[in-house]
Design a binder for these strands. Structure first.
Length: 458
RNA sequence: GUGCCUAUAGUGUAGUGGUUAGCACAAGAGAUUGUGGUUCUCUUAGCACCGGUUCAAGUCCGGUUAGGCACCCCA
């Protein structure tokens, strides 16, 4: 909302159908100044690929195993969607959304999270008519106009899982299990912080009680907490100021305000976690920043050794009322999302301190060629080999054999195949064992099978 | 959004207001034009941007931008 002003210029560009460059100051177009990525937005380079791929595959495998279907929703949505679902008064909506008018004057925004979009899709496509529960997962960019710092970016990625139609505590536990397993796959030890915030009624009563308690002690609170009193009372319990600690300890706990049903649901979730041997911590201060949660809420934290990190890798909870609130049929639901950048950063740190190296997938055989004819012959052989699943390295840009072998060596590729004019004439090729330096001449047709045998892949 | 710290080749760094801005790694070329790992030579490439102070600014000052940290909040 606040950001609209910033984009007025862009709106006019669209309205007047001017070419974009023409509307910019001449200096901005002519200047040879190098461009940078926007603040809080980052390029993900090839060297990072192994981490991203592993994360993705772990999520994908778990999704498949637990029968979640992949859903992709648009990055751009009507702004109102998030205002209604996440709630006014939350920071995400009030301060952090990228909102602007598109060329038709519609108010659109870059999604700050995906649950609202998935709920919209669930309703739009009448998924309540599908066999219940409907389980979907997604992976993609989210945008929040926050001040960047470590592990917090304006464009970041989340992987998320949503389950519609299942009100059983087992569904809550299933999502926690998936989150837990993703980190288990990566080898990063995590623990779950968990709490229940009950239903609307219970939460309302508790909030009133909490306010009542805190108001009487207002004078002893830090400034932030004074602000929280009116803005976000449940956050009072999260305060780190020492002066607020004694007040916090005596404060009423939400768990005591839960009704029978909510309490039973929560206990059941915990029993599942016990059964699954998932380490968790009951944290009565955990409330989450989005309005739509009911009952179970949880967050995933890395266990770093020296104290726990302050920022969560991900989190989620139950949102039994949201689907109805968004105009659908009453449908219970649970969801969970994990921050990829944060997870990868923690994962790397963990690997660093424990001296764990990510295996690099390097080529298994390098093709070196000399001369035009050899080059085209090599190209053909490489293409044939691709079908057999061998990872082949080559570089047609380099001409000298020396520099090509150097490359093979730098990449620690175990075997090199050398093809020159002579070999093209003879229909042969030289296979060189890069470690021992031993070479043998083989028929071009047999290169593939010989290499496979050497790699124990035959 | 608030406060604090930082900014020199691709990366990591040196540089009392006057230096041809130095070093390491990486990258590219070469040391008998068909053979890698060691060595040697050469090359490419940098003071984030804008303004101010000064005879003179990478160095001091202001602003901008970006990065980091602590809040707020969140993934």
């Amino acid at each position: 909302m606040v950001k609209i002003k910033k984009f007025v210029k862009d709106k006019n560009i669209g309205k007047e159908k001017k070419p974009v460059a023409g509307a910019l100051p001449a200096s901005a177009v002519k200047s040879k100044k190098a461009y940078n990525s926007l603040r809080g937005m980052h390029d993900i380079l090839p060297r990072e690929e192994k981490y991203w791929k592993t994360c993705f595959h772990s999520a994908e495998n778990l999704a498949e195993h637990f029968q979640f279907g992949r859903i992709e929703t648009p990055i751009l949505e009507e702004a109102g969607l998030f205002v209604r679902s996440i709630g006014r008064g939350t920071d995400v909506v009030d301060k952090e959304m990228y909102i602007f008018e598109d060329n038709d004057g519609d108010k659109v925004c870059l999604r700050p999270e995906a649950t609202a979009s998935v709920v919209r899709a669930f309703i739009n496509h009448g998924m309540f008519n599908y066999p219940q529960p409907v389980k979907v997962w997604y992976w993609g960019q989210m945008f929040r106009h926050d001040r960047p710092q470590a592990g917090r970016y304006r464009q970041f990625h989340q992987v998320g899982f949503e389950n519609f139609g299942d009100k059983d505590p087992a569904a809550d536990a299933e999502l926690i299990l998936i989150a837990y397993n993703i980190y288990k796959d990566l080898g990063v030890p995590v623990e779950i912080h968990i709490n229940s915030i009950g239903n609307l009624e219970e939460r309302g009563r508790y909030r009133a009680e909490l306010l009542n308690y805190y108001r009487g002690r207002r004078a002893y609170l830090c400034d932030d907490c004074k602000a929280r009193l009116s803005k976000n009372p449940l956050r009072l319990l999260d305060c780190k100021e020492t002066q607020c600690q004694p007040i916090k300890e005596e404060a009423p706990q939400i768990i005591d305000w839960l009704g029978e049903e909510s309490k039973k649901h929560f206990m059941r979730v915990l029993e599942y976690l016990d059964e699954l041997a998932i380490p968790y911590i009951l944290r009565s201060s955990l409330v989450r920043g989005l309005d739509y949660y009911t009952n179970t809420v949880f967050e995933v934290y890395p266990i770093t050794g020296e104290g726990t990190a302050q920022s969560a890798l991900g989190g989620g909870g139950r949102y039994d009322l949201l689907v109805e609130e968004m105009g659908g049929r009453p449908t219970p639901a649970v969801g969970m999302a994990l921050g990829i950048e944060r997870s990868i950063s923690v994962w790397k740190q963990y690997n660093d301190t424990n001296k764990i190296e990510m295996p690099v997938k390097r080529a298994e055989v390098f093709f070196a060629q000399l001369g035009e004819q050899a080059r085209s012959r090599t190209m053909k052989i490489i293409n044939d080999m691709r079908k057999s699943g061998l990872k082949v390295g080559f570089n047609f840009f380099k001409n000298s054999l020396k520099s090509q072998l150097e490359l093979a060596n730098n990449h620690k590729i175990p075997f090199a195949v050398i093809l020159g004019q002579k070999e093209v004439q003879d229909g042969t090729a030289i296979i060189r064992d890069m470690e021992s330096g031993v070479q043998e001449i083989v028929d071009q047709k047999k290169v593939e099978s010989v290499i496979k045998k050497k790699l124990n892949k035959a």
